[in-house]
Amino acid sequence: MRRDYTLYLFAALGSFLIVYIALPLAVIFLKQASDWEMLVKTLQDPAVLDAVKNSLLTATATTFIALLFGVPLGYVLARMDFPGKSVVQALVDVPIVIPHSVVGIMLLVTFSKAILDSYTGIIAAMLFVSASFTINAARDGFLAVDEGLEHVARTLGASRFRVFLSVSLPMALPSVASGSVMTWARAISEVGAILIIAYYPKTAQVLVLEYFNSYGLRAARPIAVILVAMSLTIFVLLRWLVRRGGNA
């Protein structure tokens, strides 16, 4: 029998991308390891610590806001037919295709002083670019819940809201949670819109850029390393939690 090499060929082609993603991650850590002194110095820099704190807080706040508004919207998109639904659905996906600098300009033109250089501004930028993930994940999660379950729960005496809380939401929870993780990840990685709307209060993403422009690569690298390490740790941890919850 002749062996089929198709899958091996595909794996070889695909591994290009894996190496391409993994290589810079590995290199930046390795290079930093040879410059231990700078890393320690950066970790003691109050400006850096403040910026990291700002990034974490705003990304987390964004995630909760996206949940509060995105989960109900996801449920409506999954359960209701209404004129203009396809327009709403398209609108949800629009932020993904707009360049993030443009997002910043649009938000600033629309809300100007209300969001300029404030926490509100950072969160506004993050929410705009990251809410789609929560909305779409919630919608897909609710779509996967058999409507028959909701019907039965209602005949047993539960109101629509009660059915949502006791049947639909618990069942869609793994999907909603993984959407939240994506929203959080997208929020903490946002730079373009934040640069335009809220250069201050300083977030770690913006600080990397500033240090690079003012002091060069050697000063920017440790912050980058800290950001990558932190984001990856939290991302991997959350994904692990979500997956474990989904299997239980």
């Binding site: 039965v152 209602r154 109101s159």
Partner: peptide
Amino acid sequence: PPERRGLAYIP
């Protein structure tokens, strides 16, 4: 609505 009819439904 179904919750106010009190009928049991088995799909």
